[in-house]
Amino acid sequence: MECTMQGVIETQHVEALETLLNGLCAVPKERVRVHEFFLKSGPNLGSVSSELQLLCDIGQSTPSWIVRHIGGVMRGPGADQLSVVVRTMVQSSISKNALRFFYYLGYKLEYETLKTGFAFNFQRGSAKISITVITVNKIPKLHAIDEAVPVTPGMQLVQVTAPATADNYGEVAASITSFCDHLSPLLYLSKPSNTTGIVPTAEATAASLMSNTGMKTF
C-alpha cells in the first residue's frame, strides 16, 4: 500500500518550489519523463473490471517498464482523520513487451499520457518519500509522444507518495503531512479527491524564495 497527497501549482512558481525542495530534501533532483498507458480489463474478464497502469521510463538510455495497480482506498473514521489517502498499490518491473502481453490477456488501452518534470526521492523518518512535480500531457494519436500537449496549460501537478504497510501507515502519513506543511505557503497538498487549487500566498512566497537565491520570478 501507499500514502499519497496531491496538489497543483502554477508553472511560474515551479522554479521556486524546486528551490524550496532542494533545501528540504537535500538530495539531487531527478528528471521525470514517463510514458503512461492506462489499461482496463475487457468485458467479462474478472468478477469486477480492473485497471492498471504501464509506465515506461523514457528518461533513461534503455527504457524500463513498470506495471502498477492502484486499488481501493482505506475508509473509515481512522482513515478520515488522516490528511493523506492510504490505498493499496502493487507494482512490478516488467519486460519491454508488457503492452503486447496485456493486450493478449484481454486488456484494452483506455488512454495514454506523457508526464514530464522532476522528482525528489528521500527518506524522512520511516517513510521513503517521493515528490514529483510534473506536467501531464495528453497524447492525441496512438503512442505519438512527440505530439503530446499539456492537459492543464500553465499548471503542474505535485504528488507526494510513500510506500507503507498495514503496520506503519500512520507513521508514514505523519511524516508526509509534516513534510507537506513546509510547502504550504507555496502549494496546498491534500487527498487526491480534495485537490483545492492554488494558494493565495504562492506568489509572495515564490518571490521571497527567488529573491533569497538572487533570482526573480515574473
Partner: peptide, 22 residues
C-alpha cells in the same frame, strides 16, 4: 500463441491476485 515471454518481479502474483482477471 502469440509466442511471448514476459519477465516480471517475483511479487507479480500478488498483483495478479489484486487484478483478479486471471
Amino acid at each position: 500463441p502469440p509466442k511471448l515471454v514476459v519477465e516480471v518481479d517475483s511479487n507479480y502474483s500478488l498483483l495478479m491476485n489484486h487484478l483478479g482477471s486471471y
